[in-house]
Nucleic acid binder design. Structure first.
Length: 439
RNA sequence: GGGGGCGUGGUGUAGUGGUCAAACAUGCGGCCCUGUCAAGGCCGAGACCGCGGGUUCAACUCCCGUCGCUCCCGCCA
């Protein structure tokens, strides 16, 4: 017999069906038993008169909640049943996996175990409907991003995650044993996607793992996360990158809204709004003026940078003033940006760079890159780097590299702000942090 | 790396010097109930209050140390 999904049972009144799922509730009474089975599409009640099948009733009595079951029975209409007005008359049962769940499940959401405990039992916590939804949304989101890139003739890259030499700063790299040498886990595909520019691929993207050996203990950091990266050739300046990015994001939001709007509202309590394009933009100088007006006190040592409180304040300001969850902050001082960000011709103290804040959280850094070998090398030296470790990278720009720029976005951070999740651990399948490598 | 908070049955909490050989909810086990539906009723098992030391006549409760978790800052996506 073929499997029927619970959402399709309404169309099978009077028929015998087979369903698979997890036992959410068992109500074992004197003469009757009621099982509530959950599959990925919903809940249904199955009923059994014990007298009619004592052997089956005994099997049912032995079940623990969250057992994995296959049920066979006849679907009947029954107005009395609060769960959809239908139920299944249980005829046979196959126990695929008996369980005694160490976690309370929905609808006991108000006594949810704490986060760390749920991470230990992640594979059970993920059974909760709202958690499944998060990854359905992620799937739709990534598919939409890819669709947009593909429509615009981007090439998908998969760059190596093991590197022979530390790039950029190097401080946040994980070292790994690589035969007789030391290798490093990639903390960004930055150099490789720029290499694709030198290779003439013009427009590329990559969705892949990124590793950061930062001992950060916050609700928005991970030591391994999924980076969403794009690089675009023949741009005039960083605004071209921003123009691409906002359309690409709005398109992806729209795809999520089309498919999951109601469920996101019902299960997560979040009203998904597709951001209006273009996103508000402000230069760092303008951001500082706004912060001053808002009376936000930025610590003096930040010198041209923002701190998380300032980002939240700007996010709120833009939301109120423009009704947008997103804002580009542009033209960051060279002192707080990496050496490969291009500087403004008329003001070399400022870079042609941007951050994208979503609901006051930094989710993206982007820039036009410096593609002129001599200038790039000079900027590296100015930042205190020595050239030999980055010579391979620098060489990309010796043989005719087009002007280009791009951005890197944290997938889980985007999901976090899109769904208004309180912690990035909710937005990632398996969390990796300084103190967590399991499960 | 710096700072704050927390650590009590399986889970979530209450208790903040003696009345706590620890309470409540939920889960679990048993019994009762011919249709339940966040079922209900009765009974029961389950924590020496993270660990070590100290103060005190007396510590779950105060102090010190330690471990764990968590949040914020730094760093970033």
């Amino acid at each position: 017999m073929e499997r029927t999904l619970i959402k399709d049972l309404k169309g099978k009144i009077g028929q015998q069906v087979k369903i698979h799922g997890w036992l959410q509730i068992l109500r074992d009474q004197k003469s009757m038993q009621f099982l509530v089975l959950r599959d990925r599409t919903g809940l249904v009640q199955a009923a059994l008169w014990k007298k009619g099948n004592p052997e089956l009733a005994e099997k049912v009595s032995a079940l623990g909640t969250e057992s994995a079951l296959t049920l066979i029975g006849t679907v009947v209409e029954n107005e009395v049943v609060k769960l959809g007005g239908i139920e299944m008359q249980l005829e046979s049962l196959k126990v695929e996996g008996n369980a005694e769940a160490p976690l309370p499940f929905e609808p006991f959401g108000d006594t949810l175990p704490d986060q760390d405990y749920r991470l230990d039992w992640r594979y059970l916590d993920l059974r909760r409907e709202r958690n499944r939804l998060i990854f359905e949304v992620q799937t739709t989101l990534e598919a939409a991003m890819r669709a947009y890139w593909v429509q615009h003739d981007f090439i998908e890259m998969h760059s190596p995650k093991m590197m022979g030499a530390p790039s950029e700063s190097g401080a946040e790299l994980f070292e790994i044993k690589y035969f007789e040498r030391t290798a490093y886990l990639a903390q960004s595909p930055q150099f490789y996607k720029q290499m694709a520019m030198a290779a003439g691929y013009e427009n590329v993207f990559e969705i892949g793992p990124v590793f950061r050996a930062d001992p950060s203990f916050t609700s928005r950091h991970m030591t391994e996360f999924t980076g969403v990266d794009t690089e675009i050739s023949w741009i005039d300046d960083h605004d071209d990158v921003m123009k691409f990015m906002e359309k690409w994001l709005a398109y992806s939001y729209q795809a999520v809204k089309d498919k999951h709007y109601q469920q996101i509202k019902d299960l997560l309590g979040t009203e998904l709004v597709v951001p209006a394009v273009p996103f508000p933009r402000m230069t760092m100088a303008e951001a500082y003026q706004i912060l001053k007006r808002l009376d936000y006190k930025l610590p003096p040592e930040k010198k041209g940078d923002l701190d998380p409180g300032a980002e939240r304040a700007l996010g709120n300001y833009v939301k109120e003033k423009y009704g947008n969850d997103f804002v580009f902050v542009t033209d960051w001082p060279a002192t707080v940006r990496p050496f490969y960000h291009m500087r403004h011709e008329d003001n070399p103290a400022l870079t042609k760079s941007f951050d994208l804040l979503g609901r006051g959280l930094e989710i993206t850094t982007g820039a036009q890159r410096e593609h002129r070998y001599e200038v790039l090398a000079a900027q590296a030296i100015e930042k205190g780097l020595t050239l030999p470790p980055i010579q391979n990278y620098l060489n990309y720009f010796k043989y005719g590299c087009p002007p280009h720029g791009g951005f890197g976005l944290g997938l889980s951070r985007l999901l976090m702000i899109m769904l208004d999740l309180p912690n990035i651990r909710e937005a990632v399948y398996l969390f990796r942090g300084p103190n967590r490598l399991e499960p």
